[in-house]
Nucleic acid binder design. Structure first.
Lengths: 237, 237
DNA sequence: GCCTAGGTCCCGTCC
DNA sequence: GGACGGGGCCTAGGC
């Protein structure tokens, strides 16, 4: 729907939006989106699982979307409706994304020496008191190693996360066991690097594979994919 | 636009979506959104700042959206276009949200005793080597206190964040200065609670103000009508 | 430009 | 249901 409306939201937070022309999208799964002409993020919304209702109040259309847990309500009141469309969506609803953290894990399980020579993976998602460890294994001297994977450049939070896992594991292993921690990520910020150093953790610069296939080959360091010569022509206006 | 299309994305990651009817939204700020009939998150997109182009290739419409830094490209190829609309958006594009972390900060600056009796705020966003501290102050015995605010229930990450601030501040103050850390949030998870205990940090259960009605002197310019007598009528179907 | 952290984050997964 | 962590997170604010 498109038209002049006001939008009121109340739930986890609350907001109010004055009159203006906006696009309201109502999905059959209970999603509601209010979009203006800027930003990727809707100016107001309701997550899937909400219930949409429409009613006419004082001669105006009001669309209300409500959900529970948490209790939230979105009200869109229209002065004037410019357009309404019912669109029959078909086909795939999700995509497989290549270049995820999972792809990075596969890359490492295929070539453990990418972490370091002699590294031997033993488990993925190994449970600890602090949560599951991405890759758990042993180094060339048999010491336990916790590997935390990130698909992109990381900040202090990732260093903290790895530190928590290492500490949790050290606590659950026999007293005195030295547990090493390795952060595998394309790069780290300065502050994250300092934190890693403080905690005695290390960083291995490594990116997810550039494409879904070919676990070997370069990480997506700088240059773009050379192939994909698909239609080299540029589009008109 | 709505029609049968395929979608290819390549950039920070990569994805491919087979043919189907979807909604494509192109915004003048360079945003592109591809929505199916499920989920709040678009199945594919391009962030603001991208450049949209359209061209006909092999008798089919292709919409391409490209941006740089990072290099990313989204291609939507249409078999068939069911509908095209140009919608004149007007009016407000953003909302003031009530119940944010900022509101929680105002609440505490107005009533510091909510943190603890005798607490005296000294600064907000105080800079440390680990980043800015939400609220910095002193307790009834003059000890420095770091207050970290969260608008909702928090997990282990928030405990780690507060821990980093406390440690950074302890390092920059004279040797031996005891720095206290207080996490102000509606509630904490079990694991976060354990982490806080380990680090000698404490938790004060407190939420952002329920309504926009900031209790006395709001720092925010405007305030909406506080009551909002919710129209008691329920909508028809 | 990068870094840092908030968000009505959304979302899947596993307990 | 809650908890936990990933995400092409997005977005704002500093430096």
């Amino acid at each position: 729907m498109f038209g002049r409306c006001t939008v009121e939201y109340d739930g986890r937070a609350a907001s109010s939006l004055g009159a203006g022309n906006r696009l309201l999208i109502l999905k059959p799964d209970g999603t509601a989106l209010v979009h203006t002409d800027e930003q990727r993020t809707p100016v107001n919304w309701q997550p899937p699982g909400s219930e949409h209702r429409a009613a006419v109040r004082d001669g105006r259309l009001r669309v209300r979307s409500v959900r529970e847990n948490p209790d939230e309500r979105l009200d869109v009141r229209f002065d004037r409706v410019e357009q309404v469309s019912a669109l029959p969506v078909t086909g795939g609803r999700s995509v497989d994304v290549y270049g995820s953290e999972e792809d990075l894990r596969h890359r490492i399980l295929d070539e453990p020496e990418l972490v370091e020579p002699g590294f031997e993976p033993a488990a993925t998602e190994r449970a600890t008191a602090a949560g599951p460890v991405d890759v758990f294994g042993h180094d060339d001297e048999g010491r336990p190693v916790v590997v935390e994977l990130k698909r992109r450049r990381v900040g202090p939070d990732a260093a903290g996360q790895l530190g928590r896992y290492v500490e949790a594991l050290a606590r659950e292993l026999p007293d005195g066991t030295e547990v090493r921690g390795v952060l595998v990520a394309p790069s780290v910020t300065d502050r994250a690097g300092e934190l890693l150093a403080e905690k005695g953790l290390s960083h291995v610069p490594l990116s997810p594979p550039a494409s879904s296939t070919t676990p070997s080959g370069d990480g997506r360091g700088s240059t773009t994919a050379p192939e994909r010569s698909t239609d080299a022509d540029d589009g008109a206006d």
